[in-house]
């Protein structure tokens, strides 16, 4: 018997989540519009999109909470919702924020939700709840009633609930909502350590920076459709580098650069420095040093010259037509 190389494994085996033409309509509104998600096993997959773009609606369908209007879903190699009883015990999830019984303690809440899973052994329940709470840093508040928890603590408890058993796939819907910067960092490192153990993590976010910092792959949602999908590196490569010239002679710079066949523009109005001209660097038509030489020869006084790598942010703004909130 030869071992199976990754190339020879059928695609379905190497994908944690796959959807084809997945669509969800609420009345006349189409919340999710024919999306084809491809989430490789072992990836940390960012599901990025502004508020209202259909992320939570998609996640609800992936977890068989709501029925797709049309399209197919495969999770961990099994069709959903048909295979939900085999699939869901292997999936940990946080959907549309945490939700708990306010009159029970954090630990009692986790025990309650753990009993819902028939595969969760009762003998280890207390120990597993304790470990999950420890993992999200909530041990000190384990016996406090959830009504006394802050939003950030509830968010941590929600993540702990997803970690009650070893999972093959974690689906986390905006896990850092309501967390302080320290909590956000902790979630990020938790996601990394889970990924290192072989868990596939599917994490939705409306924060670009968050996805950039923790994900290997991403899909960008806009108004219910996926507008870009792939590895983070591939998504970055699509954008183009540009030059940025700081000069008091902006008119001259525009003239020279146009003459070179570039498409220069003045810096956007919100730029702190008005004396800036930018131009996309198409392919490798011009070497930067040749551009500088041409500018100097054209009598343009150069105070600064830089080549800026393509920024994911600009690309995503271009794709979604919306800005993303910036994390401090």
């Amino acid at each position: 018997m030869t071992s199976v190389t990754p190339e020879l494994t059928p695609p379905a085996q190497s994908l944690a989540i796959e959807s084809r033409s997945l669509t969800k309509r609420f009345g006349r509104q189409t919340a999710v519009n024919g999306i084809d998600l491809t989430v490789p096993r072992g990836s940390v997959f960012g599901f990025l999109g502004p508020n209202g773009s259909g992320k939570t609606t998609t996640i609800r369908m992936l977890l068989a909470l709501s029925q797709a209007t049309s399209g197919t879903i495969t999770v961990l190699g099994q069709s959903m919702p048909a295979g939900l009883h085999e699939v869901l015990p292997r999936v940990g999830a946080l959907v549309e924020g945490p939700a708990f019984y306010p009159f029970l303690s954090g630990a009692a809440n986790l025990r309650r939700l753990d009993t819902a899973d028939r595969h969760a052994p009762g003998q280890t329940r207390r120990a597993r709840v304790h470990l999950a709470l420890e993992r999200v840093g909530l041990t000190h508040a384990a016996d406090k009633k959830v009504q006394a928890y802050s939003l950030g603590m509830k968010q941590r408890l929600g993540i702990a609930n997803a970690l009650l058993l070893p999972r093959e796939l974690l689906i986390l819907d905006e896990p850092t909502n309501g967390l302080d910067p320290q909590g956000t960092r902790e979630v990020r490192s938790l996601v990394r350590s889970l990924a290192a153990e072989g868990t596939t993590v599917f994490v939705s976010s409306h924060l670009l920076a968050e996805v950039e910092q923790m994900c290997t792959h991403a899909a960008v949602m806009s108004a219910g459709s996926i507008v870009a999908q792939g590895t983070l590196a591939a998504l970055r490569a699509v954008g183009e580098a540009r030059i940025r010239v700081r000069t008091p002679d902006t008119a001259g710079a525009l003239r020279v650069l146009t003459h070179l066949g570039l498409e220069p523009t003045r810096a956007p109005l919100d730029d702190p420095d008005p004396n800036v001209v930018v131009a996309p660097l198409v392919g490798d038509s011009w070497l930067p040093e040749a551009i500088v030489t041409a500018l100097v020869a054209g009598g343009v006084r150069i105070r600064g010259f830089a080549i800026e790598d393509p920024s994911l942010e600009e690309r995503f703004v271009a794709l979604t037509g919306e800005g993303f909130d910036v994390v401090q």
Partner: peptide, 19 residues
């Protein structure tokens, strides 16, 4: 958030038995 040993090899390829 400390990591724990419980999750080592967290990729059960077979379904856990119904307890």
């Amino acid at each position: 958030m400390s990591s724990s040993d419980v999750r080592r090899g967290a990729r059960p390829s077979v379904m856990p038995k119904r307890s």
